[in-house]
Design a protein around this nucleic acid. Sequence first.
DNA 1: ATGGCCTGCAACGCAGGA
Length: 257
Amino acid sequence: MKIATWNVNSLKARLPHLLRWLATARPDIVALQETKTQDAVFPVAEILSAGYEAAFSGQKTYNGVATLSRRQLEIIDRELPAYEDPQRRMLATRHGPLRVVNVYVPNGASLDSDKYRYKLDWLARLRDYMGGLLQAGDPLILLGDFNIAPEDRDVHDPQAWSGQVLVSEPERARFRELEALGLRDCLRAVDSRPGIYSWWDYRAAAYRRNLGLRIDLILADGDSTSRCRNCFVDVAPRKWERPSDHAPVIAELDLPS
DNA sequence: ATGGCCTGCAACGCAGGA
């Protein structure tokens, strides 16, 4: 089973890239973030023609998540329970026994902003939600754009980034709380090297110079992690014309697809 | 790395991203 995450930075702008990538990468399941697309105009037909069913939770201009699957899927939740939030950042789906939680974690803007407080609150809610899901015991994947580089080896210049949003200690502590539940970072289960990134700034030729961050992650429950055969960033679409600033991350799990 | 870009919206600059 091949499962992927990709922040496409507008589904409308990136639909040709998505279709091209689906045709070659052929993931069984892919979680998309920043679709910036209202549900009423989601490109269901194009996605279906590519061989995928789609579940989506979108809004105009900002945010928005969608989960595509080559096989049938059903929606479990479109938001974190009991959390009043107009921003569409979460979609939980079931694929047979497998449950998939697709997240677009708030960016946080800067440490002194209300948005940073919102980010920390949101992550606490996500932790509680995942804790509940883990009780059930079925295979569980949490993936998406976490807007957190978990460790310094996930940052091209830790000194320059030190203390900033995306790497600051309070948000990293929230990430470790997710790990403490028993969720494991699939990429780190198979590859301990520094310098592996999933996002590069559009400015300053950052991709060419590999000035990036690893903030797009695939986490799996313990049993599923032990079945993680491979996990890697697929940098190919980042080299295409008018790319998303994020590249897809793919995990190959020894789970029935 | 202290800066350069991109997207959507409805403008003809802004908010937001990371």
